[in-house]
Amino acid sequence: MRIEQLQQMYPSLIFHKDDQNVTISQYEWYTVDGQTVGILKEELKGNEKVLLDSFLSKVKHPQAFSSERERQWYEQLIQGKEHSFTNIRSYRYVYYQIETKLNDFSLFREGIQAVFPFPMPVIQLSDYEGVIIEEIYDEQQSLVNYKEVIELLISDLYINMKLFVSELFEHPEETNDNFEWTKRIAETVMPSANDHVIELTEAVPYLLTNRIEKGYDDRVVRTILKSTLEDQDLLKTVQVYLRSELNVTEAAKKLHMHRNTLQYRIDKFTDVTGLDIKRFSNAFIVKLLFYMMDEKL
């Protein structure tokens, strides 16, 4: 169905523009001939909406963009248009969920941007969820500490929200796959998580409880344990250390090695994964990861 035909059938049809002064929620939005158009809901009678939904590509939330960069990310992740992001060194997704319906996305985005040290694209996925893209341009750039800013976000925006922070991604050609991965993990973890900010390592217990589908658990293990998976001696050392209830002396005896050698291997594991397994909380996460690995064998 062409735009001209729709315009004849529905005089209220409008084209979505960044500076448009309309109430987004009053329209049904579709992609036609590569353009986003809206039709007033009140103009759709009977089964007309059902028919349009079946023939046209529906757009849940057309977005007014604050920058060209934000437009590119929206088109890449939501509309499937290809853009090149080779000018960034790495990136990560911050998937957000809020408890109450978001009535003014523009104000919400302004509140988010006011907290961060530099502009970041914000994509609205629904009235209750969306994604923030943190782009890293050079190795001197500091990552945002979301656990430090979450209380400020909640108090400034007057909403209760949760954030799932993905790992850093380094391959710009995999933006869409990484987005779907982040979205799936976030949707699995967030309903049962108590913390306002959840990172992948903290998500492990929830992923086990909710039995995430095959393939995702393998990626979780590979993402967190990194290159230690290629060092079987190191993994065995860590496993024995964990089974010895973090007692270096006992683990060294079981492995028939010097305490200093054991300590060196534990430090090596920490350096690679970023998990200090001398702390109980991190040791517990690694135990769960080993359990996930054993389940697959």
Rank of each mutant, 00 (worst) to 15 (best):
V248H: 08
M161E: 06
I78K: 00
A252T: 11
L107Q: 15
E134D: 05
I285P: 11
N178Q: 14
K278L: 05
F164M: 06
E213F: 14
Q97T: 08
F290C: 12
Q63V: 13
Q20E: 13
Y158T: 11
M257K: 06
E110I: 05
M293R: 01
L255V: 02
L157K: 06
Y206N: 11
I154L: 07
L44W: 03
K45C: 00
L107I: 06
T209G: 08
M9F: 04
G34C: 13
L107D: 14
L246Q: 12
Q7N: 06
Y95G: 04
V165I: 07
I112T: 03
V50L: 03
G111K: 12
M257V: 14
Q8C: 06
G130E: 05
L246C: 05
P119M: 01
D267N: 04
K254A: 11
P205K: 15
K17W: 02
L289S: 06
L297C: 07
A193H: 08
D294L: 06
I123F: 05
V122E: 07
Q239G: 10
P11V: 08
D271G: 09
K81S: 08
H83R: 08
L262I: 12
L242V: 01
A252K: 09
F164I: 07
G215P: 01
Y241M: 10
M161P: 03
W181E: 09
K287Y: 05
S155Y: 05
I123T: 12
L242W: 02
R279G: 08
F85E: 01
L246S: 09
P205N: 10
A64E: 15
K101P: 03
R279E: 14
Y291F: 05
E202F: 05
Y30H: 10
